[in-house]
Amino acid sequence: MNRTTPAGLAGRYLTLCLMLVVMLGPIVWQLLTSLKSRQESVYDGLLPSSPTLENYSRVAESFPLFAYVGNTLVVCALAVVSNCLFASMGGYALSRAGWRGRQVVFTVLVATLMFPFESVMISMFLTVRSMGLADTLVGVWLPGAVSVLNLFIMRAAFLAVPREMEEAAVLDGASEWQRFTRVFLPSAKGALAVVCITSFMGAWDDFLWPLIVLTNSENYTLQLGLKALSGSSLVNDPRLVAAGAIAALLPMMLLFFCLQRYFFKGVGEGSIKT
């Protein structure tokens, strides 16, 4: 398995690079647009003729990028923590057989999975408001604090934990909570990583819900801020929009780049296996 011919390696990189072109297209496009100066046309040609960072400083001036990123990260962090914790707890319960009402709970959960957000948005807003959480980041986070999807991801992972491991723990006299934290959680690291990513992305990407909840622009998340930059009926500068998007994206990519090795290392030890 570890034999690699130079030709094989070259082929591998060729494929990797080919995929790169396909996948990176829009980001590279935005990057190039963001480097175009005000003297040249945004619409002609791909490459900037006289690259400039001016657009980035313009964005920085008019736009509290760091505050927005900060707000977004708060929501993301809350979402990641709550999802990892609550979804694994709930997923654990769902994965254990033989308790009353399991089928009902399961059906209810499946039922709620599938609703177009627009049709439940207003009633969600009324609830959040009645809790006094309108215009707060907590209000943005709360409805997504445990997503049903993540419950199912964790449930699938726990189902796959070999029975012998659990039985051994029971024989050792471990309580339910101990079995959960010492046996099950460690063997579901891979699934936890996936939950981390899905909940982070969910919080990062969300636009309509934060818009409904937040009114004070100091509380705005990044997506809201970026939307304010882009194509209004009065001003429309693709360079600025691109610069804002890239500036917002770079930290994300860096984070992912730095974390991915841990992710996949940790994943290797965990098990979502059969």
């Binding site: 627009e118 207003i122 009324l126 309509l208 818009l211 409904i212 939307k227 194509g231």
Partner: peptide
């Protein structure tokens, strides 16, 4: 002063009207 992006402007108005805010 509150400023709201154009996209989703009407949705937000409706939610606010519904909530009485």
């Amino acid at each position: 002063w509150e400023d709201v992006p154009g996209e989703g402007y009407n949705e937000k108005l409706v939610a606010d009207a519904q909530a009485g805010t």
